[in-house]
């Protein structure tokens, strides 16, 4: 009850926490445990054969075509993360430090595009980059090219551009928040102590906004590695990623154990890359003097 003291009623606290933990346990822990179990089985007909095996992991890690998919997923997603952050940082900086009274208006303007369906936003890039799309018809109209450019669509480049657009808000907002939190007196102090604008940015602003940058990187890297929609729509065969292969195993091919092993391996790979990125970024931030 609310009238009890600040240090009492731990039972009540656990009681409040219980429903959420229960739902998450049911919808997260149990299913993930099942994935782990399935990954140690063998598909036989529409069921599973008895016995345990590591053979699925052998397949996942051994077959070259899967390795290509893993590396491409991580590389594309890494590129997406980098491009999105680099493009979004100046934007966030502008809103935090230069927009002044129009700050709120800018924030609204920056978020409105994300009210459109994710699928349609991705699809829109197909229209823009396509054979008879916006860019090609525009360039031909201007007489700059005679034939449509074909390298725009159905490759990893298209995937990177599309995802950098789709996830922009997830970069702008966290970076903006961490920039906004910086005490303006710190910047004045840096100037007072002899830093020019660039040195001040590198030594004070950038390190202090690192929490936002790291948060944004994780928020973008994790889901894009497992993205299914974008590679399917704009990636083509050369741009397909690991999620496409997982979907196929659970869909058409119906090899759930193999799909489970693929899912687990990609999950662990994402966690490892994201984890080492966080450590690396912290280390880099600590090098600033």
């Amino acid at each position: 009850m609310a009238e009890k003291g600040r240090n009492q009623g731990a039972e009540n606290g656990y009681l409040l926490l219980a429903p959420t933990l229960l739902v998450m346990g049911l919808a997260l822990a149990a299913p993930l445990a099942l994935v782990a179990i399935y990954s140690l089985k063998t598909q036989s007909g529409i069921g599973l054969s008895d016995g345990w095996t590591l053979a699925r992991y052998g397949e996942v890690l051994g077959r070259a075509s899967y390795q290509v998919l893993f590396w491409r997923s991580l590389a594309v997603s890494g590129a997406v993360t980098l491009v999105t952050l680099v493009l979004a940082y100046p934007m966030a900086y502008f809103v935090a430090f230069r927009a002044r009274r129009a700050k709120f208006l800018w924030l609204i303007a920056l978020t409105i595009p994300f009210w459109t369906s994710y699928l349609l936003r991705v699809f829109s890039w197909k229209i823009i980059l396509g054979f008879d799309g916006l860019i090609n018809s525009g360039l031909m109209r201007l007489g700059l090219i005679d034939h449509p450019l074909t390298f725009l669509l159905y490759n990893p480049f298209a995937v990177v551009v599309t995802l950098a657009h789709a996830w922009a808000a997830f970069a702008i907002l966290p970076i903006y928040v961490s920039l906004e939190k910086i005490d303006r007196a710190l910047l004045e102090a840096a100037t007072d102590l002899g830093d020019g604008p660039l040195r001040r940015f590198l030594r004070v602003t950038l390190p202090l906004s690192m929490p936002g940058v790291i948060g944004a990187a994780i928020l973008i890297f994790v889901p894009t590695t497992g993205d299914y929609v974008t590679p399917t729509l704009v990636g083509g065969p050369a741009g397909s990623m690991i999620a496409n292969m997982i979907e196929v195993q659970f869909g058409r091919i119906g090899n759930w154990p193999l799909g489970s092993a693929l899912a687990l391996v990609s999950m662990v790979a994402v966690a490892m890359v994201a984890g080492s990125f966080v450590l690396l970024a912290r280390w880099a931030a600590a090098q600033v003097r």
Binding site: M24, P31, I218, A243, I246, S260, S266
Partner: peptide, 29 residues
């Protein structure tokens, strides 16, 4: 509460798991 950090970590875990893994794991369940 003891274990608050662990509980929060667990609840936030889906943020660190690709959606496709969440989807197929529930499909299995």
């Amino acid at each position: 509460l003891r274990g608050t950090g662990a509980a929060l970590g667990f609840i936030s875990l889906p943020l660190f798991i690709p959606d496709i893994v969440l989807g197929i794991s529930l499909l299995l369940l």
